[in-house]
Design a protein around this nucleic acid. Structure first.
Lengths: 289, 289
DNA sequence: TTGAAAGCGCTAACAT
DNA sequence: ATGTTAGCGCTTTCAA
């Protein structure tokens, strides 16, 4: 039974793929459907390619020294989850690129850069969601987006705008709200969105993820507004919660598991695709529309 | 910047803690609150002790050769999640013990064995849950348990029995049902439990986890029975879902994060406790009771 | 206190 | 094809 440590040392290959997990304050990290699915997908691919999975928990204070993982030979490649478009992240990723350390981003793009990326088509997903609301007769559609440090937020905004524009519905600044993808931020957005509903300026909401949509549902319910009855509501992710909540949430299904799998494949498989992969998403119609 | 591979090779220490994850068919593994929380807790402790986390995804067909992980020096210690009391598992763990390979079980005990273990007090949790139902005036309390390959299932049964016995309520075999902790199995149990409700033989249900409780809620709703109104219902785990579902589920909160952290500490910290650690759980009263 | 050197268990290059 | 050996980058022991 060969000693993997000696083997890897002699080969100068760690045999590990690192999975870099973002720090999510308060919420224990994996409590989100999102990471869980991606991680499982990565796990499948890694196993198939005979790699081990090293989990890297980022910390809030510590610098993002991703390159160190490669220099110390802890990993041969990394998958970066929850990367954000902020200066420090850009610098850390750029360093990897310059040094030739292989990595792949999941669900995040940096448009000017030529990074390996696996993303989902959030522009189309948002377009389909908003188009569905329009088809259901809603005309004053608000949008509760996430922080724009995530490319998916920009993609969703673009899809929202395109759907409205194609339908000839004016695009109003005051119908766009920003949360941080947490349930709490959705709950808090209910105050302002309720005002809009009262003033007949909002008759439906498209939220950028299920957790915010569910928080919003709760916040509106406290004010006597029932999603699916008094207003239309669509979430995003098709998480377990979207099926459990009542009324059941119309949402957009994202192939997170497959995204994780493909990201790992890009790094580890023999013949792998280059550049950016974009996977399709799908609207799932339920009771809130 | 020292080469960790060379360092570990020279020291004959991998610097890795393995986390052995059970294979859960169909359901992508982490989609459960349970593992997510435990894993985060392990991550915190591992980082504090300067260990890296190696994720080991078990496969359905492959044998449980845990010892190989140590022999090949992939890990220095392991935390076993979702261990089951079946022959193959017992043999694999016994081998680790005999060889002196350190490991810790989470949420599972093997009573005759002296393994390092971190568990929660499910007997007390179940007792409190059933006692609460009794206090609410329910008298014909059914129990939807999980498979008895898990020690927690046995613990919960014991708590259920003790609460009934102390209240002088007869223990009836036909009020005990078995699922497999999946939402689907809860949903399916609704058929038989509905019969019991119809016959006035059941007026409340204690389910061994939230997912089964929620599946049961849905199944009963299809038959016109509303949890919290027509029957009492208690789940277990205090997962996110229990708060999202409506009516909100009364449940038992388990410190999964802390359990993971403590398990890792037992293996990695300088001065660490021996044997079995049992952490308290807490009843969380919500709308279904 | 500082420095030199053997050796960890493999791989890979080379020689047979 | 098969066997031999240097060397991977550290740690640790032992000598100076």
């Amino acid at each position: 039974m060969p000693n993997a440590l000696a083997q890897r040392f002699a080969r100068r290959k760690s045999g590990n793929v690192g999975v870099i997990l973002p720090f999510v304050p308060k919420v224990h990290l994996f409590s989100t459907y999102y990471f869980a699915e991606i991680l499982s997908g990565i796990g499948e691919a890694a196993k198939a390619c005979n790699y081990d999975l090293l989990l890297i928990f980022r910390e809030p204070d510590s610098p993002r020294d991703y390159a160190k993982l490669y220099r110390t030979q802890k990993v041969d490649a990394c998958i970066v989850l929850g990367a954000q478009d902020v200066a420090e992240e850009r610098a850390a990723l750029r360093e990897l690129q310059v040094e030739g350390f292989p990595f792949c981003l999941v669900n995040q793009r940096f448009d000017e850069e030529e990074y390996l990326t696996v993303d989902a088509d959030h522009e189309s997903g948002s377009f389909a969601a908003v188009q569905h609301l329009i088809a259901k007769g809603f005309k004053r559609i608000a949008f509760l987006n996430g922080p724009n440090a995530f490319s998916s937020s920009g993609d969703r905004l673009a899809g929202y705008e395109r759907a409205l524009t194609e339908a000839g519905i004016p695009l109003l600044e005051e119908r766009i709200f920003t949360g941080n993808y947490s349930r709490k931020s959705g709950f808090e957005a209910a105050a302002k969105i309720f005002e809009g509903i009262e003033k007949k300026e909002i008759d439906a909401v498209f939220a950028a993820n299920d957790r915010m949509a569910i928080g919003l549902m709760d916040g509106l319910r406290e004010r006597g507004i029932e999603a699916g009855k008094d207003i239309g509501l669509i979430g995003y992710d098709d998480s377990d919660s979207s099926r459990i909540v009542s009324p059941k949430l119309t949402t957009v299904s994202v192939p997170f598991y497959e995204m994780g799998r493909r990201a790992a494949m890009k790094l580890l498989a023999e013949e792998s695709e280059e550049g950016n992969t974009i996977l399709p998403v799908q609207l799932v119609k339920r009771e809130t529309t």
